[in-house]
Design a protein around this nucleic acid. Structure first.
Length: 271
DNA sequence: TCGCAGGTGGTCG
DNA sequence: CGACCACCTGCG
């Protein structure tokens, strides 16, 4: 049974910026500017009309409020970041002030970002959709479409790489199965130590910490961030350690959000 | 055609 | 350790 949830007085939220900044892969823009997608098994459509957010779909009001991080004051965080780094951040935040870090399910985030490695966004999205359709739990009908969840760790652990051939994950299929088995062997607390899973290196680990554990100080460094750190702050692109230290020293507890603003900013500049 | 795309793991020196 | 390099796949 679908419902409609309306949130009033929404500030600092832009659906395009939030859903297309690379943190999630299952939301797609409709012709009317709304977004349709699925989170934790709840298909929905979201639309922003002025400062009114209208969500039609499954789930609960509480779930969507948490998912979109609606209770956090992003304006305050922006002020803090502008004070810490007044040279580039104000302009960057003016460009992407509606970015929010979603509160995504940890396991789904692990799966998404293992798939994301050495890959591009259109193909990542295709891989996740095929994976969900082939092996995920049925999540219901919504807007003339059958929806499926990202497969559970139990399901993926039971598969062999050949079972995932149709999903065309490439060499990442082995990582996913191995990580699912490692996931099941851990208790809930030690699963948060995401760096020890197969196929999770430093970059993917930072993404999972930021997007799956909501650790806002995590600072993922990929090729784009290397370019922007070079362009905005003069780092050599190979100087990852220097970038890490800079992020920690200058941006501190909100380094991950700073990364998102800068990331969105450099892509705006290149358009 | 071939390099590359929001990297990682393995292997050298 | 740090520098290479293979790796699935699809697109320009």
């Amino acid at each position: 049974m679908t419902e409609t949830f309306v949130f009033e007085n929404i500030r600092d939220l832009d659906l395009k910026q939030t859903f297309e900044c690379g943190q999630c892969f299952r939301w797609n823009e409709e012709r009317d500017g709304s977004y349709t997608g699925i989170a934790q098994g709840y298909p929905a459509n979201m639309k922003l009309e002025g400062d009114r957010l209208i969500i039609e779909g499954y789930g609960t009001r509480e779930f969507w409020a948490e998912y979109l991080d609606l209770d956090r004051d992003y304006c305050e965080i922006q002020a803090i970041l502008a004070a810490k780094e007044p040279e580039v951040m104000p302009e960057a935040m003016a460009c992407g002030s509606g970015i929010r870090i979603l509160c995504q399910d940890l396991w789904e985030t692990v799966v998404d970002f293992i798939i994301s490695q050495n890959n591009n966004i259109p193909r990542i999205k295709g891989c996740i959709e095929r994976l969900a359709e082939a092996h995920g739990e049925y999540a219901g009908e919504f807007r003339d479409k059958s929806w499926y969840r990202v497969p559970t760790a139990e399901k993926l652990a039971s598969l062999e790489p050949e079972d995932l051939a149709e999903v065309r994950l490439g060499y990442r299929d082995k990582y996913l199965i191995e990580t699912a088995r490692q996931w099941l062997a851990k208790d809930e607390d030690s699963r948060c130590d995401v760096g020890c899973f197969t196929g999770v290196g430093p970059k993917v680990e930072s993404c999972i910490r930021l997007f799956g554990l909501h650790e806002l100080d995590a600072f993922p460094i990929d090729v784009w961030v290397k370019r922007l750190m070079n362009r905005f702050y003069g780092f050599e692109e190979k100087d990852k350690a220097g970038m890490d230290a800079f992020a920690n020293d200058v941006f501190g507890e909100y380094a991950g959000l700073a990364q998102q603003y800068l990331f969105y900013y450099i892509r705006c500049l290149e358009k």
